[in-house]
Amino acid sequence: MATLTWIRAWLIFFIVALVVSGVTAFPLEAEVTLGSSILHATPIAEWFPWLVEWIEVVRYGLTDTYASYPWIAYGTDWLAFAHLVIAIAFIGPFRDPVRNVWVIQWGMIACIAVIPLALIAGTIRGLPWGWMLIDMSFGIFGIIPLIIVLRLTRKLEREQSEAVAP
């Protein structure tokens, strides 16, 4: 497989992950309710009671808040929108990774920034440590394909400069 094809395959994976992550932020209350039902119907409730307790706290919080203040969900709508816009930004590297390498580097910086945000905001908001680890995993797992894309982009850049050299 050619270098550009690999770059594009990894970028498609990354873009799809961003879109899925974003779209799932829209129906948050329904997803948490479904997740709670699934957890209660499986042995996970016995294996990880702390997880079930936390999901229940989140479910009650969302249900109560949305019942009285449905406009609060608008905040997660913007979160979803941001994911979609970030995904769109990666169309540039998909089209021309060498010229748009800065988008890849910016994405890597954003992935790294997820970790202190989760630690600081999660602590301030009283989130359990396990939940903060899940949030930090988005940055950790997100940076992996971008590192691969950056390395492949550097390789493509060398290949292109060698092809142009006399």
Score class of each variant (00 low, 15 high):
Pro166Asp: 15
Thr24Ser: 11
Glu46Gln: 12
Pro128Trp: 05
Val103Ser: 04
Arg99Leu: 07
Gly142Ala: 05
Trp102Asn: 11
Asp96Ser: 10
Ile15Leu: 12
His83Pro: 01
Ile143Leu: 08
Glu157Trp: 07
Asp135Met: 12
Gly122Thr: 07
Ala121Met: 13
Glu157Gln: 10
Leu150Phe: 11
Met108Ala: 02
Ile91Ser: 12
Ile7Asn: 01
Gln160Met: 13
Ile143His: 09
Val85Phe: 10
Leu133Tyr: 03
Val98Arg: 03
Ser161Val: 07
Phe26Ile: 14
Ile115Trp: 04
Glu56Trp: 09
His40Lys: 15
Ala110Ser: 15
Val19Gly: 04
Gly126Met: 00
Val103Thr: 07
Cys111Asn: 05
Ala25His: 10
Tyr66Gln: 05
Ala82Ser: 09
Val85Ser: 11
Leu119Asp: 03
Thr153Gln: 02
Ala67Glu: 04
Val101Lys: 15
Val149Asn: 05
Ile38Met: 06
Asp64Pro: 01
Ala17Cys: 13
Ile112Gln: 06
Gly122Lys: 01
Thr63Asp: 10
Ala89Gly: 02
Trp129Thr: 13
Ile134Phe: 11
Leu119Pro: 03
Arg158Met: 07
Phe90Ile: 01
Thr24Ile: 08
Ile44Pro: 00
Val19Arg: 05
Leu119Arg: 10
Ser137Met: 01
Ile143Lys: 04
Thr5Lys: 09
Phe48Ser: 08
Arg95Gln: 12
Arg125Asn: 15
Pro116Cys: 04
Thr76Arg: 07
Leu62Gln: 08
Gly142Asp: 01
Tyr66Val: 13
Glu29Asn: 13
Pro70Ile: 01
Trp129Ile: 10
Ala87Ser: 05
Phe48Asn: 08
Asp64Gln: 11
Gly22Glu: 10
Met136Thr: 09
Glu162Leu: 15
Val58Ile: 13
Ile115Pro: 01
Gly22His: 11
Trp78Asp: 11
Val19Phe: 10
Ala110Arg: 12
Leu133Trp: 04
Gly139Met: 01
Glu157His: 08
Phe141Met: 15
Phe90Thr: 04
Ile88Asn: 06
Glu56Gly: 13
Ser161Cys: 04
Val164Trp: 14
Met108Pro: 03
Pro93Asn: 03
Gly75Gln: 12
Arg125Leu: 15
Ala25Met: 14
Thr24Met: 13
Ala87Ile: 06
Pro97Val: 09
Ala82Arg: 11
Ile15Trp: 11
Gly126Ser: 06
Leu146Asn: 00
Arg154Met: 13
Arg95His: 15
Met132Ile: 09
Gln105His: 05
Phe14Ala: 14
Thr76Lys: 07
Ser37Lys: 12
Ile55Asp: 03
Leu156Trp: 04
Thr153Leu: 00
Asp64Ile: 11
Ser137Trp: 00
